[in-house]
Design a protein around this nucleic acid. Structure first.
Lengths: 123, 123
DNA sequence: CCGTATCCTAAAAGATACTG
DNA sequence: CAGTATCTTTTAGGATACGG
């Protein structure tokens, strides 16, 4: 970003970003992260419950993305039980909740566009 | 997306999306698109002017992304002059302008986060 | 049930050189 | 000035199998 003719950047944990958009992309970019946060906005969900909501994501991708979101402090993971089968619950942290209005706006644009240029179909 | 126990999707130009978030990601996903739209929000910019704003993007990436944004109807391109050197101007279409509030929200989160967890530095 | 491990492909992105 | 061409690297994502 250029302010008064000077190039400025955000420095966060050894990473450099040229504008706020790039910062946000770092945390919710990629095909799945924002969708996962979107489904967690109403509250706690189990691994399998997220899977039901996003059927075209593989177990591996869900697992990877959940791990990344946890490392970034966006979600909190709770494992219930001592032996398999486990019950594993995910929920948004305060940081994660701060992203909900952002993703709500993203979803709004997408549904508006989908309703105007496409159609909603049952499968 | 699941509505009344039924799986529903958006169908837009032979592409299928499971929720509005995925639709929006299709149009502004990736590392550069939303940043480019962000810098075009104030009005028309030349190719070289965008480059100045986003110095860590190569010519090739800028060229590719501008082409994709044009094909999606998000920006409009105008070439001025008959011979090189050309003056090429880019500006948002109405569809592109509809994305500005979305990306403003994204930028807002990023700058808030950057100011809280990182710092703004001159380079 | 909730993952991880392995292997693989495809897509995104980068480096460099070149051109109308 | 505003790109394209070519080549390479990196990252994202997918398929399948397996394990506590």
């Amino acid at each position: 970003m250029i302010i008064d003719g000077k190039q400025k950047v955000y420095q966060i944990n050894d990473e450099t970003f040229h504008c706020g958009v790039a910062v946000c992309y770092r945390y919710i970019g990629g095909k799945w992260k924002s969708v996962i946060i979107w489904y967690l906005r109403m509250g706690l969900l189990r691994f399998s419950e997220i899977k039901v909501q996003i059927p075209d994501m593989t177990d591996k991708m869900l697992s990877l993305q959940l791990k990344a979101l946890k490392e970034d402090g966006i979600i909190k993971k709770t494992v219930i039980g001592k032996k398999a089968p486990f019950r594993v619950e995910y929920e948004l942290t305060d940081l994660g909740k701060s992203l909900v209005p952002v993703i709500e706006r993203i979803n709004q644009w997408g549904t508006d566009f989908g309703n105007e240029k496409g159609e909603l179909m049952e499968i």
